[in-house]
Design a protein around this nucleic acid. Structure first.
Lengths: 116, 116
DNA sequence: GCTATAGTTAGCTTTATGGCTAACCAATCA
DNA sequence: TGATTGGTTAGCCATAAAGCTAACTATAGC
């Protein structure tokens, strides 16, 4: 599973809607297609993309294909984002500490200057 | 800030690399360009895309443009993902409870059958 | 003021994306 | 077995994406 494909898959509103729909449980291709004013083959493409991204799995029994969500992929993306934000926030913290240090030094300087 | 654009922006490896680089602090366009074997205008396009997605901000002073990360956008995506996963997991929980219920009933049935 | 540096604009190419229709296959169901 | 339903394949089109080069603008440094 690659971030590229997962982010790519989620960048389309139709596909995000499908993911949201699948959060409520499995669905057949036809069921997924209903809310959209879109030809079946077009929707199938989206499903394929979701599948190749690892976000969705599907299985065909008889003539109906049932799709379901694969949460591991969602989790992977969450982890990546959280990691980035963490690094960033650590940096902000350091910066903040540095600023605090500067402020204290400045206060000290002010006191010094006053006492001169 | 729209999910479409943020996910779209993050679906490209070059742009994710830029985001990761900016986690370590601000950088000029030139600095950002260095690690990539890519013409400047191409890289600039990526920066524009990151900017229009709200992930990155930039300001030009003199002749250098300095770019920085806007964490709110990252946070927004995280929230969306977490929400989806939560719904999904709640559903799994309900399903699990249902399965447990079924198991208990089955056990009860077995006991009944034995006592017959 | 000339030159080098840092971006920017314009315009081109190639490939990918998102949509369509029409025709097709394979299970159900009457 | 013939019609209907559910999905699939193939192939087309328009637009967007990702890259390039070449030429341009505007600051900084000498």
């Amino acid at each position: 599973m690659q971030l590229d494909h997962v982010f790519g898959a989620l960048s389309d509103p139709t596909r995000r809607a499908i993911v949201m729909r699948l959060c409520d449980g499995e669905a057949s291709v036809g069921e997924l297609a209903k809310p959209f004013e879109m030809a079946l083959p077009s929707l199938m493409k989206h499903i394929r993309i979701l599948e190749s991204s690892g976000l969705v799995a599907s299985e065909k029994t008889g003539r109906v294909r049932t799709c379901s969500l694969q949460t591991e992929a969602l989790a992977t993306v969450e982890v990546w984002l959280a990691a980035q934000r963490e690094i960033w926030e650590q940096r902000l913290d350091r910066l903040e500490m540095y600023v605090e240090k500067l402020k204290k030094e400045e206060k000290a300087n002010v006191r010094k200057r006053r006492s001169k």
